[in-house]
């Protein structure tokens, strides 16, 4: 395959993955169903997690290590390191309020970092709670959605109430999709995010969690 074909195919893959579904689904106002789904959805109680991440843009790839730490009081600290240990980014997210970027040695914007890369990383820590809305998907399955800044995160559930896919919507436009794989631990063993807004794919493999 010619080298030029790879970024084109990757771009098409991102587009096809994100244009196939353009609505978070119809809201279902059923308190009993909502209570049942919220109770069944897996809440994440992991306070430290490390991921090995591969980020792919058309024609470019970078691998890094990402660390998430839950702070007392509910805030989060997040950092990304190169393979040689240099800090690529470090961000503090208070329980209430905007993310504060402390270090950003990336040739990309703060919006890309916070709304793109980190949004995908933090999906396990933003699982909907009692404030969620229940939505029905076109195939009849359920989703729980929550507002996150200017976007809506929709956690698609399987029959056991386990979330397996998370769609991020800006208005009615899906801007990213994250598929996860579980192995019984507190956070997914693998998360793959396709982000059509910032044009990247991130594959995260869990290294440790506790």
């Amino acid at each position: 395959m010619k080298a030029t074909a790879v970024p084109i195919l990757m771009g098409l893959a991102i587009l096809s993955g994100c244009l196939g579904h353009t609505s978070p689904g119809a809201v279902v106002r059923d308190p009993v169903l909502k209570a049942e789904l919220v109770q069944r959805i897996r809440q994440v109680h992991v306070t430290n997690a490390v991921f090995h991440t591969l980020i792919q843009w058309p024609g470019r790839e970078v691998s890094l290590v990402e660390i998430v730490k839950v702070l007392d009081g509910g805030g989060l600290s997040v950092a990304g390191l190169t393979d040689m240990g240099n800090t690529l980014y470090a961000v503090h997210i208070p329980a209430q309020g905007r993310a504060e970027v402390l270090t950003r040695h990336l040739p990309l914007s703060e919006a890309w970092l916070v709304e793109g890369l980190m949004a995908g990383l933090l999906i396990p820590w933003r699982v909907p709670d009692d404030s969620a809305q229940v939505r029905q998907q076109p195939d009849g399955t359920w989703a729980l959605s929550r507002e996150q800044g200017r976007t809506t995160l929709s956690y698609l559930l399987d029959e056991a109430g386990q979330w397996h896919t998370v769609d991020c919507f800006s208005g009615s436009r899906r801007v990213s999709r994250t598929r996860v794989e579980w192995d019984g631990r507190g956070v997914p063993v693998k998360m793959e995010t396709q982000d059509v807004r910032y044009h990247f794919v991130a594959v995260r493999e869990r290294v440790t969690c506790d």
């Binding site: 790839e61 691998s63 594959v203 493999e205």
Partner: peptide
């Protein structure tokens, strides 16, 4: 716990990441 590799043969640098069970050569802008 993470597998990654930087190779320099005196002429060219190649960066690799062990991802999804195999070595992948990266088109690293850096």
């Amino acid at each position: 716990p993470v597998r990654s590799l930087l190779l320099y043969d005196g002429k060219k640098v190649n960066c690799y990441s062990f991802t999804e069970g195999q070595w992948k050569r990266l088109r690293n802008p850096g």
